[in-house]
Design a binder for these strands. Structure first.
Lengths: 344, 344
DNA sequence: TTGTATGCGTTATCAG
DNA sequence: CTGATAACGCATACAA
């Protein structure tokens, strides 16, 4: 059942070091013996033990995908499989394996000793919700390769992949303008939040491009949940100059807002357009379905993997860009079909 | 940065085998030296290299969670994080690590050689959509520990965890009866599908318990998608004895059915009740929201982990039950609130 | 109760 | 071009 390098060596009539060199395609081995040894390996169905290789090489050929099971994160939860898939697809082609590392409580856990110092993994990918500033600094100091999912506030010295929120804010705004809406509000998000800030930047940029004045009273901020979605709309409806469309920070805000609008007898999309960030969890299922910005999280995983591989393989002097952003994709649905009659 | 067993041995003034024995809490070591060595280990922040341990023990202390990235499976996708979390929580407490194994195309992949024969993992967990009869047989023959997520048709010789579909069918039926509905239809599912069969068993059992006659014409089968949901309803509405409630195989069927009913001007839940299997992806978001059966997939992961651990640790002669089922949880929503006025 | 020697399956450094 | 031999970090008979 288990065939080792020694078995191959014996069967091929060579030493095991020769076999090892064949596996690594060493240029110091003749093509003839390479062929012969490879033939035997195939016959005997040999696969090297990655564990032994890891020990000898003092390198695990493993990438850790760090999670914190003690925490709830519905969004990450939903995207996890895709991110993992993207990540796996690129590291596998570099012969790396994927290990899940549960970090738990950083203070009490032996995460660093277990995985980092011991080289149980050669690099890690972690969400910015679990990557603290201190961790980032320590990792950097050890020059241990890692990639953050999502930017880490105020740092451009670490590798990260993220959604391009600025472009996202711009795309949604542009779409609503294209559809014929003129007074576009923005609902949700905390002012201190970088994601919010970037989205608003895109929003304002597009306003400027169309010489439209930004109305600060149309930017309603606060925690992005259903209840606030309702509250935001109530505020908006009380204003003398009422918006005719709005952009939501997420589906929760959009859901609350939509309910309130429908209850008020306002027609969507005829009298009010709605566009939101994220397709998950409910944008396709509301009445009417919501136009939204979707993220290719598989691609996010791919980007993270490539960034990690480049750190692992390239000479450190090369200054590769540290941040990578992926553009969201607009999914048009009924909630913004003001111009639908005029469309093909 | 990296401290090994030798460093500890030197620092403690003992041999490295003694240190090793201390780590494994060998009874042949005096408490005094144990204390001393442990003290040093703590001071030096020592963590054993799992790679070296694996090689020496000829056992990886790793569990493989097998996935097939080349395939799309939205449901698995959504539940993956929870299942993984449950699995991780139990194997971690047994000091096992979690490795993701992408199997890809079984014919061309070296999955068995890489992971199984080489003992890269000590056990695997895989979905029944990727576990073939042949794989199961081979694994069994190697007496390699594994657990299937979902039953494998026609086999009770393999370990598996699954949702209790029979109980599920019964729970939904019972709930509708409790709410005052009397003529309950069942929509979706292929007759050859075991899941369907079990759910129908529960459905019929509950009918029998209430001395209600089962009407075969109220059981509409077919692929469980939105379109068929619409078709099923149309058939039902044409019948002279019209049902007053129905159970759907999944959210897709329910969505199509609900739309058709609403379009026909039938009121939900007053004139027609709707209950469905699964909470994902849209049961909470329809109008009205759908009563459904939810699955604690974290628990599913826990069960799988425990089953694997028992295979790994127990003597093989012990005949532990091979199948484990978890009961679904009923989530009541408006779509079945016929009795709502009478309720507290 | 502790230490010595050997092995786990590879890689790497030298000789030859 | 190939082959001994010594690591890699730990576990484990067997001695002491």
């Amino acid at each position: 059942m288990k065939v080792t390098i020694n078995d191959i060596a014996k069967a091929a009539g060579v030493s095991k070091s020769t076999v090892s060199k064949v596996m690594n395609d060493s240029p110091t081995i003749s093509e003839a013996t390479k062929r012969k040894v490879r033939e035997i390996m195939k016959q005997m169905n040999y696969t090297p033990s990655s564990i032994a290789t890891q020990l000898a090489r003092q390198s695990s050929f493993n990438i850790g995908l760090v999670v914190d099971m003690s925490r709830q994160n519905d969004f990450l939860n939903h995207d996890f499989y895709n991110i993992m898939g993207g990540l796996e697809s690129v590291i596998a082609s570099h012969h790396y394996e994927l290990t899940i590392c549960n970090i738990g409580n950083l203070e009490t856990s032996d995460f660093f000793a277990r995985y980092i110092y011991n080289k149980r993994v050669d690099g890690i990918v972690l969400d910015n919700s679990i990557l603290t500033q201190e961790m980032a600094s320590e990792l950097l100091e050890l020059s241990f390769p890692f990639v953050s999912l999502g930017e880490l506030d105020g740092r451009d010295d670490i590798f990260s992949v993220d959604l391009d929120n600025r472009t996202g804010g711009s795309m949604l705004t542009q779409h609503l303008i294209d559809q014929g809406y003129k007074r576009i509000a923005f609902l949700g998000g905390e002012r201190a939040d970088r994601i919010f800030q970037n989205r608003i930047k895109g929003y304002k940029k597009t306003f400027a491009e169309h010489q439209l004045p930004v109305q600060e009273k149309w930017i309603r901020t606060g925690f992005s949940n259903e209840e606030n979605g309702r509250a935001f709309i109530r505020h908006l409806l009380e204003q003398d100059e009422r918006p005719d469309a709005f952009i939501c920070m997420n589906n929760n805000v959009a859901f609350g807002a939509l309910q309130t609008i429908v209850a008020a007898g306002i027609k969507v999309p005829e009298e009010m357009g709605i566009a939101t960030f994220d397709n998950y969890p409910l944008a396709p299922y509301t009445t009417p379905p919501l136009t939204c910005l979707n993220t290719d999280t598989f691609q996010l995983g791919i980007d993270a993997g490539q960034m990690l591989m480049s750190q692992l393989h390239q000479q450190k002097s090369v200054a590769a860009p540290h941040q990578s952003f992926i553009s969201p994709v607009l999914i048009e649905r009924e909630s913004t079909r003001l111009n639908q009659i005029a469309r093909p």
